[in-house]
Computed example of a mutant assay.
Amino acid sequence: MKVAGRCGEGSEGMVRVARGPRSAAMPHLVRGMHRVLLALTACGVVAFAGPARADELTGTLKKIHDDGVVVLGVREASIPFSYFDGKRTVGYSQAIAMQIVDEIRKTLGMTQLRVHEITVTSSNRTPMLLNNQIDLECGSTTHTVERENVAAFSDSFFQYAVRMITRKNSGITDFRDLAGKPVVTTAGTSDERLLRSLNTEKQLNMRIMSARDHQEAFSAMKDGRAVAFVMDEPIVYGFKATDPHPDDFIVTGTPLGYEVYACMFRKGDESFRALVNRVIVRSQTSGDAERLYRQWFTQPIPPRGINVNFPLSEQNRALFAHPNDHALD
């Protein structure tokens, strides 16, 4: 059951209430008042819902409070999600991460909370999280069932297909055309797993290269060391849009699968999970997520004012209407 209501002056809040056994003896009025109380508590209207006391903190929030800093894992070239524009880290996912930082500040009552960014790759992001080198990563990390064994994931903030980018004159239109050819993807990604599975199942004999990061993978395709770069559809559209000669490339191929991005944090930290999801649900159900989407996918973005031209899909529209943390694999 979901209880939603207006909070404060113009803001909105939502609390998810676990459904328990119904009691026939419980008066309808009491049940209604209970729901209202829960909703007001989530919104911060009830008097005791103020900044958390230091001695009540646990997990990531306690670490952040004690250190006086929140450490974000950021990407260097996951355009337009999390990337360095020459001055700072920007992007759709980075904007979500900074909304979460603002919520941490309010929850802890620490207006001067510092933010430290550490650049991560697809290969090292999880070890750095588990080793407490970063507290939160909101970039282009796929939520998979397998990864739930080692890390926790927020409600999803983006759904996409896995496809490939290749040169327009390559003659490649689908994955069967990659048989016997050199193909590149990024090491440590779910795309690498999907590509290797396809290679084995269809006996395509592809020569698969695993690049350190997305930029290196795109460069390998562009330089001719690989005929195609297999990756998340919005990522390859980002590289196509930012290349000096975007018309030289096409994004093609029947999707290998559909996946979702989410923020990643340490397992077993329910208070931090609740905070992160509170931010994401509020953004998606208020219309702010759609505004962010338009800003980063359908309008000019820094540093060169390119437009990714990747309109909001029906899948993402449905995700925003019904926030959830379901992996799609």
Results as ranks from 00 to 15, higher is better:
Phe158Val: 11
Gln203Phe: 01
Asp102Ser: 09
Leu204Lys: 02
Thr186Gly: 05
Phe157Met: 01
Thr141Gly: 14
Arg196Trp: 03
Ser210His: 08
Phe175Asn: 02
Ile208Val: 11
Leu108Gln: 05
Val183Arg: 03
Ser78Met: 12
Asn124Glu: 09
Asp135Lys: 03
Val90Ser: 09
Ile165Val: 12
Leu129Pro: 15
Val150Leu: 06
Thr126Met: 04
Leu108Asp: 05
Thr107Leu: 04
Leu129Asn: 13
Glu148His: 03
Gln215Phe: 13
Ala151Cys: 13
Ser93Cys: 12
Met98Cys: 01
Ile96Gly: 07
Asp155Cys: 06
Phe84Met: 05
Ala217His: 01
Ser190Trp: 09
Ala217Arg: 00
Gln159His: 02
Gln203Val: 13
Asn124Leu: 11
Val90Trp: 07
Asp191Val: 09
Glu146Asp: 10
Asp135His: 08
Glu192Gly: 10
Arg125Ser: 08
Leu113Thr: 15
His143Ala: 05
Asn124Arg: 10
Gly109Glu: 14
Gln94Phe: 14
Glu148Phe: 00
Lys202Tyr: 00
Thr89Cys: 08
Asn131Trp: 06
His143Gly: 01
Thr173Gly: 11
Arg212Cys: 01
Gln203Ile: 12
Lys87Asn: 14
Pro80Met: 13
Asp213Gly: 09
Thr186His: 02
Met206Cys: 13
Asn132Val: 06
Arg196Glu: 12
Cys138Ser: 03
Leu195Cys: 08
Asp85Pro: 07
Met164Val: 09
Arg167Val: 02
Ala151Tyr: 07
Arg193Thr: 13
Arg176Asn: 08
His143Ile: 00
Ser156Met: 08
Met110Tyr: 02
Asn132Ile: 03
Tyr160His: 12
Gln99Trp: 11
Arg193Trp: 04
Glu146Ile: 05
Phe175Trp: 00
Glu146Trp: 00
Thr119Lys: 09
Arg167Phe: 07
Ile165Glu: 03
Thr173His: 14
Arg75Val: 00
Ile208Glu: 02
Asn205Glu: 05
Thr111Lys: 15
Gln94Thr: 11
Val145Met: 06
Leu194Ala: 13
Ile118Tyr: 06
Asp155Pro: 00
His116Val: 11
Val184Tyr: 05
Val101Arg: 01
Ala217Asn: 01
Ala211Pro: 02
Gly188Asp: 10
Asp174Ile: 13
Thr119Phe: 12
Ile79Thr: 05
Gly188Phe: 09
Ser93Phe: 12
Met110Cys: 04
Arg207Thr: 11
Phe218Met: 04
Lys87Arg: 15
Glu216Lys: 01
Gln99Ala: 14
Gly86Arg: 09
Ser210Ile: 08
Leu130Arg: 12
Pro182Met: 15
Val120Ile: 15
Glu117Tyr: 00
Asp102Met: 02
Gly109Gln: 14
Thr186Asn: 04
Leu195Trp: 03
Arg196Tyr: 03
Phe84Val: 00
Glu117Val: 00
Ser78Pro: 06
Ser170Tyr: 15
Val184Met: 05
Val162Glu: 11
Pro80Gly: 11
Val115Thr: 02
Thr200His: 11
Met209Ala: 13
Ala211Phe: 04
Thr89Tyr: 14
